[in-house]
Write a protein that binds this DNA or RNA. Structure first.
Lengths: 248, 248
DNA sequence: TAGTGGTCTAGACCACTCC
DNA sequence: GAGTGGTCTAGACCACTAC
């Protein structure tokens, strides 16, 4: 069952992406859209709110909505899972477990994932045949066994865990910064030691807020870019000061 | 005039940040909140939608909302303006124009900012007394004069432009990646050439969608981190493949 | 001043979770 | 089956923009 406002949003999005509403142009008023789709104004507002969240349109009180762009943000799954992102965008990709071991949780990990044992996995992932990403993931103990059952060249860990134990990754927090490649990073990615990597540290939880994994992902410079569209009314991104003692 | 739902959101946010609703705990139901605040259910839903957008709470149909965390995302102004961000977070900061000149727009810039002349400004910004950010900003020709009138050590360009010509930065698009420091970057930031920098390229427009500026900002590694909180239902971040020919 | 989006209400029905 | 959040309606008033 697809909601009414979703279908309205789909139709409007299609019109925007196909150029029916050029960038910078005005969208029809809520009243006009309500009449066109034979829906209440509230439903139309929900639909355009979807487009606003995707960064496609902007709005302000008293003036008509305007079209801001034609690139929309992706689903949570596509941000969370390298495989789902790569597949949805038509890239050739691969992945391989390099190392995997259980060990006791450190103090920091205990706070984040729960006490006891954790499973640490080192994966190397490639895009268009080139190694681009070193993933160091620490899984909470309660799901270690499920991860260990996966094949070493498992394409999508996210999908495999859903199929095997019904696990849904629902919420994520991501920290993005730049770091110099360490010796292992350099060897795996085929870059010089100290060269720039784009780092994404993430922790993920289930719907219930139960922590699942914590990961340190490093992309080779030039392989991947993160993109955000924001507005005076909606701002998902946070900038934080780091530790200035660190010097490259 | 502050909206009702904003005040409700403020109160609930305060309770979450002060620990009144611990992380992982359930929020009261919409019906309970409606009764407590003597508001319609729709108004309460608007309020919790604000908290969800800030990444503080998560929700799913049929189950109560849960508290996800205690760090909230910042306002657009704080992401857009280094000065406003630094001030809001209690940092000591400074800035200085290093170089500034008018020149004809390149082909790419013409498409992004409009034809004719543009103004290119090179600024160095510091945090806690240390240089951390090199900003190379290109302003559209129509606002070049206003920028040239600013003092070289202007703290907040955003605020100054609002005060002088009423300009409001309303929408932004941001691309985030890692690059090696060039010769000029290295000299200004006091790092080795080739060492990692966190790059944020942004283009900003007015409420009407009129392009204002396009900037290439480079942070010294370790000085600043970007943070995102997302969920299966709301995902503001986009990951894009870069040009793999680039090698560090 | 007319038109537009922003806020708010009151009520209905449905899909889903949890027990 | 009771409770909860998700969807949708119909209508009202207000703040703001554009002219």
């Amino acid at each position: 069952m697809v909601a009414r406002y979703e279908r309205i949003a789909d139709e409007l999005r299609g019109e925007i992406l196909s150029g029916g509403h050029p960038i910078g142009s005005q969208l029809p008023s809520e009243a006009e859209l309500a009449e066109r789709f034979r829906a209440a104004r509230g439903t139309v507002r929900q639909a355009v709110a979807v487009l606003a969240a995707e960064g496609l349109v902007g709005s302000r009180q008293g003036a008509r909505r305007i079209v801001l762009g034609r690139t929309r943000s992706q689903s949570f799954a596509e941000l969370h899972s390298f495989a789902q992102w790569a597949r949805a965008n038509g890239h050739r990709f691969g992945g391989q477990v390099i190392d995997q071991q259980r060990r006791p949780a450190s103090t920091v990990e205990s706070a984040r994932l729960g006490r006891g044992e954790v499973l640490e996995v080192l994966r190397l992932r490639s895009l268009e045949g080139e190694p681009v990403l070193v993933e160091r993931t620490v899984y909470a103990g309660w799901m270690a066994a499920a991860v260990e059952r996966l094949p070493a060249d498992c394409e999508s860990v996210t999908e495999a865990l859903y199929d095997s134990i019904g696990l849904v990754f629902a919420y994520g927090e991501h920290l993005i910064d730049a770091v110099p490649a360490g010796a292992q990073d350099a060897r795996l990615l085929g870059v010089r030691r100290g060269s720039p990597l784009l780092r994404q540290r993430r922790t993920t939880t289930t719907h219930e807020g139960r922590p699942v994994e914590s990961s340190d992902d490093r992309y080779r410079a030039g392989s991947v870019t993160f993109s955000i569209r924001n507005s005076i009314g909606a701002n998902p991104l946070v900038r934080q000061a780091g530790d200035l003692r660190f010097r490259a």
